[in-house]
Simulated assay, not measured.
Amino acid sequence: MKNLLFPRQFQMAGWLLFVPAIILGILIYFGVISFAGVIETILNDAVIIGITVGSIFIVCSKEKHEDEMISSIRLASLLNALYIYSAILIASVLLINGIAFIYFMTVNLVLLPLIYVVIFRLEIHRYNKMSEYEEQD
């Protein structure tokens, strides 16, 4: 099967897009900073695109030691992120109403890639720790 991952250098570019976009998104969402008109639209779009493209670069670029286990972790992380995302979406549809639902759906635009990055990085960290432990024995 052909490997369609980005080169490893894309991971750093992804972090450089992802982290500032998350910070700016949180600041805008909670009203710490606010803009009006066209600038607000441009910044909102930049945040959503930055989080999405950054998360794709982070997760879809090769690891230092790419092997079958990493591929398995990618797939398991994607499935777990999809399950969590779906559960959150269903719960929000049932429990949130009115304008709060609109606010939550704004966050929901980037929730799946966000969950995926968190789960994937945690699993990679766990795998690396396990590998280090096995090498010591």
Results as ranks from 00 to 15, higher is better:
Pro113His: 03
Ile33Arg: 01
Ile22Glu: 08
Leu94Cys: 06
Glu123Phe: 15
Leu27Ser: 09
Phe101Thr: 12
Lys64Val: 14
Glu132Ala: 05
Tyr133Gly: 00
Arg126Cys: 08
Val47Asp: 01
Phe35Ala: 01
Asn128Cys: 05
Val118Glu: 04
Glu63Gly: 05
Pro113Val: 11
Asn108Ala: 11
Ile115Trp: 13
Asn3Arg: 13
Met130Cys: 02
Ser55Gln: 08
Leu24Ser: 11
Leu17Ser: 12
Phe57Val: 09
Leu122Pro: 05
Val59Trp: 06
Ile56Gly: 10
Ala100Gly: 05
Pro20Gly: 03
Phe10Cys: 04
Tyr127Ser: 09
Arg126Ala: 14
Val107Met: 03
Met1Arg: 06
Phe18Pro: 08
Asp137Ser: 07
Asp67Gly: 03
Leu78Ser: 11
Arg121His: 10
Val19Lys: 01
Ile28Ser: 06
Asn97Gln: 15
Phe120Asp: 04
Gly54Ser: 12
Phe6Asp: 01
Pro7Leu: 02
Phe10Asn: 01
Thr52Glu: 05
Leu16Pro: 02
Leu111Ala: 05
Ile99Val: 11
Ile56Ser: 07
Ile84Glu: 10
Leu109Tyr: 10
Phe10Ala: 00
Pro20Glu: 04
Val32Gln: 02
Asn80Val: 07
Asp67Glu: 12
Ser61Ala: 03
Ile70Glu: 06
Tyr29Thr: 12
Leu4Ile: 06
Met12Thr: 10
Met69Phe: 14
Val47Leu: 00
Thr41Ser: 08
Pro7Ser: 11
Ser92Leu: 03
Thr52Arg: 01
Val47Ser: 03
Leu75His: 10
Met1Asp: 10
Asn80Glu: 14
Ser86Arg: 03
Val118Ser: 08
Ile84Phe: 07
Ser55Thr: 10
Ile58Gly: 06
Leu94Glu: 08
Ile26Trp: 02
Ile88Cys: 07
His65Arg: 13
Asn128Arg: 15
Ile58Trp: 00
Val93His: 07
Phe6Gln: 02
Ala46Pro: 01
Leu94Ile: 11
Ser55Lys: 08
Ile90Ser: 08
Ile124Pro: 07
Asn108Pro: 03
Ala21Asn: 02
Tyr29His: 11
Leu5Gln: 14
Ala46His: 00
Glu66Arg: 02
Leu17Lys: 14
Val107Ile: 15
Arg126Gln: 12
Gln9Phe: 02
Leu79Gln: 07
Ile48Trp: 00
Ser72Arg: 15
Glu135Val: 06
Gly37Lys: 03
Ile26Leu: 14
